Computed example of a mutant assay.
Amino acid sequence: RVNYSYIQPHSRTELQMANSFTSMFLLSLLFTSVLTSNVTRTRVSRDVRTVCTPDQVNDLLSCYARFLALYNLVIEQVGARSVLPRFSRLYYEINRQSLSTMCLNWNVLTQCAAPINLQCINKQVFNTITYDAHESTQWMQNHAFFEYACGAGNNLFMANEGCLTGALAVSSFSKRLLDCGGDSHIEDPGMLCVAAQNTNRCITDSFRRECGESAAIGACHASTNIARRAEEVEPMCLIDMDLTCSSANYSIIFLLISTIMMSLSR
């Protein structure tokens, strides 16, 4: 590690500029690979969906059966279809638990579902294993939220467990998404990313006011994961959403690089 205290002002400035250039270059390599891997930039939502095989759907239901059993709930039958129970029944149960207890139970589901391709766990799949479209949205959002809160974002959420447990008991994450325009129907594909970013900002501001900065960052990433599972926006937008959650500076760098690379690819 370089000790900057022994570097002359002029040399220090040059070194910092070199480090900045190196960081920008590495980021450009990363995003170049992302851009070139999807030349057509097809919108993911409503156009391209990763579909679970029937066996994977059955495996997912079996894993949910284990999870639901912890709340004395079971998979239900609608004609020949096996479906998850009404979401309100699960919500009533989890709303009475702390976040840490919920995550212990959630891990039963995630460990069971580990062999399943995560990319196929999306809105379309929940459409096939729930009563209707409204139920599908609630189950999908719940899955994506706890997937992050009990997984990659567990440290952020556990550090604010008391406040977040209370805040979510007053107003669920799904309700907050609704209040932030998360269910808005966007006709223009070009506006999908803008709408998703606006929802993220609204969610972030909501949790920042109630529980502080680190809780807001966690909530922002959870909201992004919901957009990921809903397959509403392009992969490039999801990358920017995650970067924006962590650092506004990284988002600016990303936008500059992606703009340059898209211009060069034309």
Rank of each mutant, 00 (worst) to 15 (best):
R176M: 10
Q138Y: 09
T165G: 03
I121S: 01
N154M: 15
T110E: 08
Y148R: 07
E135N: 10
A114V: 13
Q111C: 11
Q141K: 10
L156Q: 06
F145K: 02
C120I: 11
K175N: 12
A113Y: 04
Y131K: 12
M158I: 14
A114K: 14
H134N: 12
V125Y: 00
S171N: 13
G162W: 03
W139K: 03
L177E: 09
F173M: 08
K123G: 06
S136I: 07
N117A: 14
Q141H: 13
N142K: 06
Q141D: 15
L118V: 15
H134A: 15
L164P: 00
K175R: 15
V125S: 06
W139T: 05
A159K: 05
V170E: 13
L178C: 09
N154W: 13
T137C: 05
G151P: 11
H143V: 11
G166V: 09
G166C: 08
E147L: 14
C112W: 04
A167H: 02
C112M: 10
I129C: 05
A159H: 06
E135V: 04
A167G: 00
F146H: 12
N154K: 15
Q141N: 13
V125L: 15
M140V: 10
M140E: 08
T137N: 08
S172V: 08
V170T: 14
A169H: 13
R176D: 05
I121N: 02
Q119I: 10
Y131P: 02
A114I: 12
L164K: 00
T110R: 13
F173S: 01
R176F: 07
K123R: 15
L164G: 03
G151K: 11
C120W: 03
C112Y: 03
A113F: 04
L164C: 07
T165C: 03
